[in-house]
């Protein structure tokens, strides 16, 4: 069984193709890093998997089923700067959001839901800060709030967008320990990461991305100088010229209605 399967995925943002024919299957129960330079489509890939972007082509499968069927089994941890931290909410308020379900928003949360939120806060070691307004936390603590919210959901697969950004070394290690504990319980963690320094020791599996998929596989197999060169060595000239052409001419990224028989 695969945690995530992406087939022929093409996504355009403002007509500019940011992901091009990406195709992979990811294993379960591992810590999987998605790496690549800035603007290589890493965050877009996560959002596309979560159904936040219209796909120009291809499809996504979560745990061998459609996203709609598996929504409760997949949790999304967005980048920290996507919210206004002045929002009047406490740590507990935010973590409880992990238990919100569509169609049940007019009903009260059950005691079980609340208990699960409290346990999730415990797991990320934020119990003393439970009632603190989220703006009064450090960057690392804010990141842990988001992780706790995902944990509260009780998902199998976790998609995390840059969880280590703006976090000090000690917190980075604390978060990594937490992710490893989650993995050891059989959870799958897929995280976007921009920095290669701290990767090798902790990830099991790597997806190397630069608009198109460079390669993917167990980390010891794919972390080669050649792959790093194709991932970070800059965009190929011809390729980026074509990307620009598609945007300026507003060309349909995938044509429809003409097929071989």
């Amino acid at each position: 069984m695969n945690s995530i399967e992406v087939h022929n995925l093409t996504v355009a943002y403002n007509q500019l193709p940011v992901l091009w024919d990406v195709d992979f299957e990811l294993p379960k129960g591992q810590i999987i890093g998605i790496v690549g330079p800035n603007g290589s489509g890493k965050s877009t890939l996560l959002k596309a998997i979560m159904g936040l972007f219209p796909l120009s082509s291809g499809y996504v499968k979560v745990l061998d089923s459609s996203l709609e069927q598996m929504r409760s089994s997949i949790a999304y941890v967005p980048q920290r700067e996507t919210v206004d931290w002045n929002f009047p909410a406490s740590v507990k308020d935010v973590v409880e959001m992990g238990r919100y379900q569509p169609g049940k928003l007019f009903r009260k949360l059950s005691n079980v839901d609340k208990q699960l939120a409290v346990e999730a806060i415990e797991k990320v070691k934020l119990t003393p800060f439970m009632d603190r307004q989220i703006g009064q936390l450090s960057g690392g603590q804010q990141q842990r709030v988001f992780i706790a919210r995902a944990l509260a959901q009780g998902a199998e697969v976790y998609l995390m967008d840059e969880p280590f950004i703006g976090v000090d070394v000690a917190t980075e290690k604390a978060i990594m320990d937490l992710l490893q504990a989650m993995r050891d319980e059989g959870k799958t963690i897929i995280l976007v990461h921009h920095d290669l320094q701290s990767v090798t020791a902790n990830f099991d599996y790597l997806v190397m991305l630069n608009t198109r998929l460079v390669t993917h596989g167990p980390i010891q197999e794919v972390l080669t100088a050649e792959n790093l060169q194709s991932t970070y060595g800059g965009q190929l000239n011809l390729f980026s010229q074509l990307q620009q052409l598609i945007q300026t001419k507003d060309f349909p990224i995938r044509e429809k209605g003409f097929e071989d028989k």
């Binding site: 091009w20 082509s57 198109r212 011809l238 390729f239 074509l242 598609i246 995938r254 044509e255």
Partner: peptide, 19 residues
């Protein structure tokens, strides 16, 4: 150049040939 597998290139090429 882009390490695509042979069975995955046709779709993209269908578009690019016009550009």
């Amino acid at each position: 150049r882009l390490n695509f597998k042979e069975d995955h290139i046709h779709g993209t090429a269908e578009t690019i040939e016009h550009l």
